[in-house]
Each structure stands twice: as C-alpha cells, then as structure tokens.
C-alpha cells in the first residue's frame, strides 16, 4: 500500500517543513518514505509544494501526478492540485485563506481555518502544523504520537517553538474531529 501527500501553499508557509515532519514520523513507524520538494526560483516567496510518499514497499517512481491526498494552504494550490487528487483521498482546505471548495464528491473534504487557529495560538507561522495535525487525524496515515515525537525532534533546542507547535498539533487534531 502506498500513499502520497501533496503539501502546497505560499513560500514561507512552512510547506516543506510540514512534509518533512510527516515523512520523518512515517519513517519512525517503519514505512519507506520519500520527500520530494519543488525547488528553484519559486522557493523564494512564490508557490511551494512538496510531496511525501509513504509506502510499505521500496518506493519506485518518485514522480506522482495523482497524489492520494492534498493539504492546500492557499487558493492557487487548491485550484492547481485538487482536480488531480485520487478518488477517496483527503483534501484539507485552509479555509482561513481559501474561500472555495473542491466541488468533488469522491474525496473527503476537510475544512480547517488553520491560519486563524494559529493566530489565536499566538503565531501565524504555526498554521502548517495545525493543518498537518488535522490532516493526520482525519487520514490516519500514521500514528499521531509519532507525529508529536517527530515535531519535537524538528524543533529540538527551541523550547518556545516546541510549546507553540505542541499546542498547534492539539488544536489541529481537535479541528479534524
């Protein structure tokens, strides 16, 4: 069984980082993983996306045109990638910034005001973690406890950030239930 998660949004929204935290957690759970970024000029403030492939077998092609899931942090990302998500996947929409829906009835649409939730927690930069937590909760793609562990390792050495992101993970989880 192989799943692919596309994370997409503005450069600076922590897109690559949320993908990395998920990939790391999935690796800890014993899965084969690959994290594939978009790279180049667009990483300086344009759109950014990355793909995380999680599989119970060695991963062949890292090139995936139709991911199983999508976490869309801004409108252009949703417009670009929602149509290519496989039937049955989860599409998370950051409803703080995206006023539209997918108009698909074959996917599991999850509306989360990630940016607003993060603002309420005191730092808009935690929106990516809120969305990640909500996505993992809904998709059950990996064990939530490993997500917490992976995030802690990512922010190791920065207690303030760990605290903020632990709150973000909790808030994201709540938003998905």
């Amino acid at each position: 069984m192989q799943s692919e998660v596309m994370f997409a949004g503005f450069g600076g929204q922590g897109i690559l980082l949320s993908g990395k935290i998920l990939a790391h957690a999935a690796m800890e759970q014993g899965f084969e993983v690959a994290w594939i970024p978009s790279y180049g000029p667009e990483m300086r403030g344009g759109t950014a996306y990355c793909l995380v492939v999680i599989s119970d077998r060695p991963i062949g092609s890292p090139i995936i045109k139709n991911p199983r899931h999508l976490v869309a942090m801004n409108r252009p990302s949703l417009e670009k990638f929602a149509p290519v998500v496989k039937s049955g996947g989860v599409v998370l929409i950051n409803s703080s910034l995206i006023p539209i829906r997918t108009n698909r009835d074959d996917i599991d649409e999850l509306m989360v005001p990630a940016t607003d939730i993060a603002k309420n927690l005191g730092n808009v930069r935690a929106a990516n973690i809120v969305a990640l937590a909500a996505f993992v909760t809904r998709s059950k793609i990996i064990d939530f406890d490993l997500l917490i562990k992976s995030a802690k390792e990512e922010f190791a050495g920065n207690e303030k950030f760990i605290l903020l992101n632990m709150k973000a993970l909790e808030a994201g989880k709540k938003a998905a239930i």
Partner: peptide, 10 residues
C-alpha cells in the same frame, strides 16, 4: 540528477 540531490529518503 536534481531529484537525487533534492529528495529526502531514510
């Protein structure tokens, strides 16, 4: 190639 360089794997 660029993918080998940019990709993360365990």
């Amino acid at each position: 190639d660029g993918l080998i360089g940019q990709m993360m794997e365990p």
